[in-house]
Simulated assay, not measured.
Amino acid sequence: MSLHSESGPPPGDAGGAPPPADEPTRIPLKIEDWLTVAIMAALALITFANVLVRYFTNSSFAWTEEFSVFLMILLTLVAGSAAVARDRHIRIEYFAENGSLARRKRLARFGAAMVALLFALIAVLSARMVWDDWRFEETSPGIGVPQWWYSIWLPIVSLGIALRAVGLCIRRGRTSS
């Protein structure tokens, strides 16, 4: 029995059943979904453009690798936010799904609280890193743009993940079945 109602396909079934519906949240989960789509589209476009340029000119855009790495990191963080909000983050099912309902509820809240604490800490520490990047005028190694253009997103998205985890903790506190 699961604390949250997931009704995916039975083991061995290759699909056919629709994915479980998302729980209602105050901030729509479509934000992460659309950011994921936009980031993936940008990655595909710059990679395709670089392939075309390399094929026709035997050279490549210098900025594509640096920007692609940044977008992949941002994509990972945005997807992490969606996973936390949907309660699909990594856990050890043996501990998370066994025991009484009260125990599962406590573990779910504890897990969400720890995720919130971790990402709040990452947000604070990475904000200090952004400040240093700006203050010391650090530039990116590939194309020489200010490093804070890339690093500013870590505290912002980390704070978003922390807030999503707080929301999950509150929702798990209300779960009655």
Rank of each mutant, 00 (worst) to 15 (best):
M1E: 13
M1Y: 10
L3P: 05
H4N: 10
H4I: 14
E6Y: 10
E6A: 12
E6L: 10
G8D: 04
P10F: 12
P11T: 03
G12M: 00
A14M: 03
G16R: 00
A17S: 03
A17D: 01
P18K: 10
D22M: 07
D22S: 11
P24A: 14
R26M: 11
I27C: 10
P28Q: 05
L29V: 09
K30S: 15
K30N: 15
I31N: 12
E32S: 12
W34V: 12
T36L: 09
T36G: 13
M40V: 15
A41Q: 08
A42S: 07
A42W: 05
A44D: 04
I46T: 06
L52K: 08
L52V: 14
R54G: 13
Y55V: 08
T57Q: 01
N58M: 14
W63G: 13
L71G: 01
M72S: 11
I73W: 12
I73M: 13
L75T: 11
T76L: 14
T76E: 07
V78L: 02
A79K: 09
G80E: 01
A82N: 09
V84T: 04
V84G: 06
V84P: 04
R86W: 04
D87G: 01
D87N: 11
R88P: 02
R88V: 07
H89F: 13
H89A: 07
I90E: 01
R91G: 00
Y94K: 13
A96E: 09
E97A: 13
G99E: 00
S100C: 05
L101N: 06
L101M: 10
A102S: 09
R103K: 12
K105R: 10
R109C: 00
R109E: 00
R109K: 04
G111S: 00
G111V: 02
A112N: 02
M114I: 00
A116F: 01
L118E: 04
L121S: 15
I122P: 03
V124L: 03
W131V: 11
D132W: 09
R135V: 10
E138C: 14
P141I: 07
P141R: 07
P141W: 12
G142A: 15
G142I: 15
V145G: 06
Q147F: 15
W148Q: 05
W149K: 13
I152A: 15
L154K: 13
P155T: 07
V157Q: 06
V157T: 14
R164Q: 04
R164W: 02
V166N: 07
G167Q: 15
L168V: 05
C169G: 08
I170H: 13
I170S: 07
R171A: 15
G173A: 05
R174T: 09
S177H: 12
